[in-house]
Amino acid sequence: MESLSQTIRPGAVNFKSGIPNNNFIEEVLLCANLKLLAMQLTLEFGGGLELLCNSLKIHKVNVDPQDGEKLTMKHLLAWVRTNLIKERPEMFMKGDSVRPGVLVLINDCDWELSEQLDTVLEEDDVVVFISTLHGG
């Protein structure tokens, strides 16, 4: 998985590691267009959480990786809190993670099976947040 992301964005990796890139022009372009490196993600809010973000369930977003390198769930959560949550952030987060009772699925997979806050996200990932805290 890790190596795959490196092949997708060779410029960023090389830039960070300081290994000179043999294609100077490509390197310059990548630097100039760092914004383009923003990762496109699909975020879905359910179980009532959508009410915290303009009642919109699905958000297609572009998130800048930290230091232009990688994007972790921890960083994404902070980004969501700042950029998408319009009210009652305490319904969504507790500390730097989601509030207990909020399920997180990354590409249809329970985040308890991955590294949770340390999970590294990639282009086109789909992250779903569902609150279990509403009435049944």
Partner: peptide, 8 residues
């Protein structure tokens, strides 16, 4: 295809 599962 590459956006699947990030399992430990």
């Amino acid at each position: 295809a590459e956006a699947a599962a990030k399992l430990k």
